[in-house]
Nucleic acid binder design. Structure first.
Lengths: 148, 148
DNA sequence: TAAGTGACTTGTGAAATGCAAGTGAAATCG
DNA sequence: CGATTTCACTTGCATTTCACAAGTCACTTA
């Protein structure tokens, strides 16, 4: 449980260092990608994602992402076994970071998913607006679902 | 030594996954930042950077960055002890990624270096143009220095 | 030629990771 | 209603990576 005030000793005050300390590992951004672009929101879905994260690592990353305020973790009111993972506004604000990383790799590495790449290349602003809109719709709906 | 053709087994073809496999650790992007923004180009400078990377990790990351074509490693012709590390075009193309990570952290975390942040916020395009121009100047000069 | 310098390597213990198996609560099936 | 599944994890263990300290070695400078 850390926030702006109580976050533990950073290696430096550099904002890039902060990002790297929070997101700099081999899995966190992939989980965020699955939530942002594929609308994944359950443990099982993340586990079955193509890169095959180990279950203990997944549990750890989800906890850390929540601690950093990037996702929320809630029980599904209609099925008490299920847990629903959702991006916060802070999490959705990572869309530009993901977009630039996708563009960089698409340009310099041999990668697939050219559909996504072309979509981002074509109009970055519109792509980001789309992601944000999708997220707003889902958040509003899920709030309504929980009986507001 | 890996390139588009011979790179080893990726976990998936997703371009974001490629970026994460190459850059997803706690140090690589900081080294790139030091080269891009602070004009660092020697081992000693990286070692003395504020986040205090361990020397074996630094050597390992520099090797990997070179293997991925993000930096070049050359001996200094005027002092054979010294090694000069330089960003390639592929490396300088990471500027937008760094910029977005800086903006995200500046917005959501408690960080310093507000000068840099404001510079990027004020005009992202111009900031990127500046980085690229700086790099071009240095690359041209260093090529000339080596007797072309 | 003796004393640095710069760029590393090596050794060691601690921490993070990957893999397989197991747990426990809640839902669904027969 | 009891048995089986489903879901979200936890536990154990071997392997890999990391951090820290010390040492090496080619080269340069005094």
């Amino acid at each position: 449980m850390q926030n702006k005030e109580t976050s533990p000793q950073r290696r430096s005050g550099c904002p890039l260092n902060a990002s790297v300390e929070i997101l700099g590992d081999r899995w966190s951004l992939l989980i965020i990608r699955d939530m942002m672009l594929r609308n994944f929101c359950s443990y099982k879905e993340f586990l079955e994602s193509h890169e095959r994260i180990a279950t203990n690592i997944l549990a750890d990353r989800l906890r850390k992402l929540e601690a950093h305020g990037i996702i929320t973790i809630d029980r599904d009111p209609s099925d008490a076994r299920r847990v629903i993972y959702r991006l916060t506004a802070k999490g959705i604000d990572l869309a530009p970071v993901l977009a630039e990383m996708v563009l960089w790799a698409a340009r310099h590495e041999d990668t697939g998913n050219q559909g996504l790449v072309r979509q981002i290349q074509k109009d970055k602003k519109q792509f980001l607006a789309g992601v944000r809109k999708q997220w707003t719709a889902r958040t509003v709906r899920s709030t309504a679902d929980r009986g507001v």
